[in-house]
């Protein structure tokens, strides 16, 4: 087991000033857990080589800053975070995982996040990705939800080079709930892929997917979403939506929705759209004195809003809405006080 290193956050380059009250902070650098200034009270974090285990208790609010840099990372090196959600739904914990890169070198990382939601337990996980524009980052998120468990996961991808987020979620036991959301903002030559596989093994479960993308420049995004309802998974509810907004006529969005249903008493739906900002809406806004630039921005914010609104922690939601606005305005989106060179 690695000894936890105490680092002086004030001197550290990835100090984070995001005002998340009561949030306990932990730092991961190249897959290794560094402790924060405060103890990680109530949360058990164990760091073994490059595997970090987190076990949540009642009402934990944990912010994990996950930084990768090229200096020590070899190509293809991995990080692994195991999360065991052990707090009851009513007292569920929130984990924010901020994914950053240091420097602007090109390198490649694989990440693995395993989540187990225990019986009647709940977890809200928010993953924010704000990385340099050349690196490759593949994240595999494996989820298992036990009886009556509930998971809410939202991935907000603000910036990155070539990002692939793959979610495999299994509703293992009855009455499980899985709410997956994602907002990907792509620009320039970026590529953002989202693969979602939801498997309803047994009945009575609910899964929802809402993934939205705003594409600018020459960027490309791919969404592959799959829902599988097993023969014994009667009374399942499973919904999937993927909506893409093209800002540039060179951007390319691909959407592949799949729905595979073996049970006959289920409620399932899927929908995929790829579109541009409506001329009528733009003219209406401009006729009120909102410039074309601001009108487009308002439309993009409105589009993104549906995903951001799903985030339950208010201060976090507001922070992310602000970051998304700055990102859409093309401003630098380093969080205040942080010197990670995300983009």
């Amino acid at each position: 087991m690695d000894k936890l290193k105490i680092i002086d956050i004030d001197k550290e380059i990835f100090s984070c000033s995001v005002p998340l009250e009561n949030a306990q902070k932990a730092y991961i650098l190249n897959g290794v857990l560094m402790s924060g200034k405060e103890d990680i009270r109530g949360v058990q974090m164990v760091s073994e080589k490059k595997s970090i285990t987190i076990e949540t208790k009642e009402n934990n609010f944990l912010q994990i800053i996950n930084v990768r840099e090229n200096a020590v990372l070899r190509r293809g090196e991995e990080y692994c975070i195991e999360i065991k959600a052990n707090a009851l739904k009513e007292e569920k914990s929130t984990i924010v995982l901020c994914s950053h890169t240091l420097g602007d070198e090109r390198f490649s990382t694989k990440g693995k996040i395993n989540i187990v939601v225990e019986k009647e337990c709940g977890l809200e996980l928010i993953i924010m990705q704000n990385e340099n524009g050349v690196s490759v980052h593949n994240v595999d998120i494996d989820i298992e939800i036990k009886y009556g468990g509930s998971l809410k996961l939202n991935i907000i991808t603000l910036h990155g080079g070539h990002i692939t987020n793959t979610i495999n979620s299994v509703l293992l036991e009855e009455q499980a709930e899985c709410d997956l959301g994602g907002l990907y903002l792509s620009d320039r030559e970026q590529v953002i892929n989202t693969n979602v596989n939801v498997l309803h093994k047994v009945g009575g479960g609910i899964s929802r997917q809402l993934f939205k993308g705003i594409l600018d420049g020459n960027s490309k995004t791919n969404f592959n979403g799959k829902i599988v309802v097993s023969p014994q998974a009667q009374k399942t509810e499973a919904y999937q939506a993927n909506n893409n907004l093209l800002i540039s006529d060179r951007a390319k969005a691909t959407s592949n929705p799949h729905l595979i249903i073996y049970a006959d008493d289920v409620k399932c739906s899927h929908g995929a759209t790829i579109g541009t900002i409506g001329d009528e809406e733009l003219f209406y806004m401009r006729s009120r004195g909102i410039s074309l630039y601001e009108a487009k921005l308002l439309q993009q914010q409105a589009f993104a809003g549906a995903v951001l609104e799903k985030i339950e922690k208010k201060e976090l939601k507001e922070r992310l809405i602000g970051l998304v606005e700055r990102r859409l305005r093309g401003e630098s989106i380093h969080c205040q006080g942080c010197s990670t060179r995300c983009c």
């Binding site: 009120r288 909102i290 308002l298 439309q299 914010q301 409105a302 809003g305 549906a306």
Partner: peptide
């Protein structure tokens, strides 16, 4: 014109 997601207050304030 209907503009879903843009609130009246945000619209007019802008």
């Amino acid at each position: 014109v209907e503009i879903p997601g843009v609130t009246n207050v945000n619209f007019m304030k802008t």
